[in-house]
Design a protein around this nucleic acid. Structure first.
Lengths: 195, 195
DNA sequence: CATCTAATTTGATATATATTAAATTAGACG
DNA sequence: CGTCTAATTTAATATATATCAAATTAGATG
């Protein structure tokens, strides 16, 4: 997992607890000792220690020790810095390094091919499209392909040449003019474009 | 718990999970179906459903059903609205309705008085101060108090008048000039002021 | 209608963590 | 030093929830 994503998760986890939010609420107004927080929030001291440890881990809260008494205060700069960082990441994306945009296609191809030949043709439109996109990549680009030549090429991957040829045209991967076939130009990488 | 605080907790909980953040990461770029998300994030469909349900609960994600296929998309307005609301509350305060700022004092007083008489005098400086503040409230304000009169008043609450009188002066609750005592003006409500 | 697919629901399991009692640490004070 | 206090650490428990297999639902398709 990316460090960025990890930080995001930690930040949200730190704030995803009622007791900790209430502690922050108190500390936003003023410094307080552990005992005060316990009394104010009606929690036992160990509970307060536990939560303060989590908040200190992220640097959201700082401690000043004075004898046996520990004074806690919010670190507003840190809160603000994290909040800012989070807002910039949030909608934009933990996306980048984290995921493989072709994972779905790869998964489909692993199920329906052995890398070279087609084991079976998926019934599902979505999966079939993945397979056809894979197949068309194995045909020469920019060449006129008479039906017999095309059949021979498809035959290398699957015996049912007629069905696959029809599907390739139907789904827009091939064009046909006067019984001569040709690879269609790719529209876009965005799968949302093909319905 | 206040609704405001409850919403805050829900919001942070919704985002305090790696899988959900990654889902949001994908949906920030484009719409996706459940199966795609499962393949992209390497999770099983039930897991994806589970997380999407949580995100939809808060309105962060919306669903469009098309046959047996469910398309999910982020609701950026909702994300932004919540983020804005959260930032305004965050440092400022879940404080208000949630806590009783006198809780600590009340707790101390319940332990060391029966409401009128002092059961015992706390050794702890902090607690003793709470008790002395309570005691001084029971003395007349703006009056000169000769030592004997003061003793009589203190006597109503505890027999050890000498000790309490000394503490009241020492902690600044009373002033003494030429053996005549008087309530000191309150400095501030902030307990941090007295140390 | 039988079948296939996408998604959800259900049920089970495992992990995380909030809470607190009990024990421990460490400073203050006489 | 012994005691008192504030806080922490430890250990135990309870609750929440992330995950996924199995069963179920509902639409599409032949």
């Amino acid at each position: 997992m990316s460090d960025d994503l990890q930080l995001l998760v930690s930040f949200f986890k730190a704030l995803a607890d009622e007791s900790r939010l209430r502690i922050i609420g108190v500390l936003a107004a003023r410094e307080a000792t552990g005992g005060e927080l316990a009394a104010l929030l009606d929690l036992k001291p160990p509970t307060v220690t536990h939560h303060l440890a989590k908040l200190r881990e992220l640097g959201l809260v700082a401690r000043r020790v004075e004898g046996t008494t520990h004074h806690y205060r919010l670190v507003p700069e840190r809160v603000e810095a994290l909040a800012k960082q989070v807002l910039s990441s949030e909608t934009v994306a933990a996306t980048d390094a984290t995921l493989d945009h072709d994972a779905y296609a790869q998964k489909v191809l692993r199920s329906f091919t052995d890398g070279e030949t087609i084991l079976s043709i998926p019934t599902s439109r979505r999966k079939r499209d993945v397979l056809l996109a894979w197949l068309v990549e194995r045909l020469p680009e920019g060449e006129d392909l008479p039906e017999l030549a095309l059949n021979a090429l498809i035959q290398r991957h699957h015996p049912d040449t007629a069905a696959l040829r029809r599907e390739l045209v139907c789904s827009g991967f091939l064009t046909r003019e006067r019984s001569v076939y040709r690879r269609a130009p790719k529209p876009t990488d965005d799968p949302a474009q093909r319905g």
